[in-house]
Design a protein around this nucleic acid. Structure first.
Lengths: 190, 190
DNA sequence: GGTTTTTTTTAACATTTGGTAAAAAATGAA
DNA sequence: TTCATTTTTTACCAAATGTTAAAAAAAACC
């Protein structure tokens, strides 16, 4: 049970059996249908999830346009972090792109775990460090690469996403309009 | 002593006197002259710092061009994180933009603190969470705002930086050439 | 102070991307 | 299936930003 989750966390800390047992009562499985919401606008993100199956997108509404901050690859943690860390209403929205299976942990329970187990706190810290490093990479990409290169890099790194995610979301993630993405796809015959 | 540092950390956790005392032997003050390096290319980032005075920039060399990932505002933590977390050679370079006073803590000592004090581990986690949230904001800015808006927002949020930092670094941070920044500055008479 | 070097600005032109509108294709619902 | 809706593509023109080159300004050096 929770094999993918355990493997993911195993990259960051070696947890004892007791520490594993401590988290299990807090893990709740949630199934979302395509287009269901995980976090709605204005709602407090009271939980974080690990994506066991399916894809989520994290976006917000900017003058009527959806701005996609993230498309979750499989087997990662996802939440609307600004809301989650401060437990205030979220401007970010999280929605299922496909049918999805999530492992959900509530903020308060996770904080309890952090308080009680230094090793869990370590996992939290390490996960955040890695997410920060990844986000940095994306910033470098925005500075140094034109949209075409960002598109190619994305196809290479997350080929599975292109099987499941509408192009308009990918365009927004890349920071361009879907018309521009169409134009790129016509030109780029890798 | 360390008032600014204490205030910064105080936002994230309430540390006992003992916990404060535990860190002090590990803090080392380092003075850098303008253009001195804090981390060189290919060197392992064995420490993190808190900027007590002055400004650092974090960049890397991309085909001969400097790409500025970050210009540190005062009183924040700075390191070449990809190198720091994995203790591998750094592609990122950190250099003093002005004369600088840093409080430096070595990676191994900080890890020791993290192991020993859950509260310090908490500080590490919370700091990373906040840095991640800030980086997210920057990504949203790249997606939604043209360079002119990013420039205005930067002037508003970090007016002090414009007093001390060469425009070419600011241009790179904004993701544009210094020629484009010049053009913007001529046009934009806020 | 004068000289060299670096940084910033200006200009003309090229390229990339956006905006608008509409057609084509794909998807979903009855 | 058929119809309605949504997504993707195409086209044309506008706006933003890059590229190259050079001049002007500022800073560093002796």
């Amino acid at each position: 049970m929770y094999e993918d989750l355990k493997q993911f966390i195993g990259k960051f800390a070696n947890l004892s059996l007791e520490e594993w047992k401590a988290v299990e009562p807090f893990i709740e499985t949630r199934l979302l249908k395509k287009n269901d919401y995980f976090v709605r606008e204005g709602e407090i993100a009271r939980y974080i999830c690990f994506t066991q199956k399916g894809y989520l997108r994290v976006f917000y509404n900017h003058d009527g346009d959806d701005i996609t901050r993230d498309i979750s690859p499989l087997h990662t943690f996802v939440t609307a972090l600004p809301s989650y860390v401060s437990q205030t209403p979220s401007y970010e929205i999280i929605q299922a792109i496909t049918d999805t299976e999530l492992f959900v942990i509530y903020h308060d329970n996770l904080e309890y775990l952090y308080d009680r187990y230094n090793n869990w706190q370590r996992v939290g810290r390490r996960v955040m460090e890695e997410m920060f490093v990844q986000t940095q990479r994306r910033i470098y990409a925005f500075i140094t690469q034109p949209a075409e290169d960002r598109y190619k890099a994305m196809m290479k790194e997350f080929p599975d996403i292109f099987q499941h995610v509408p192009l308009q979301y990918i365009a927004s993630y890349l920071g361009i309009t879907s018309q521009s993405l169409s134009r790129l796809r016509r030109t780029v015959k890798f």
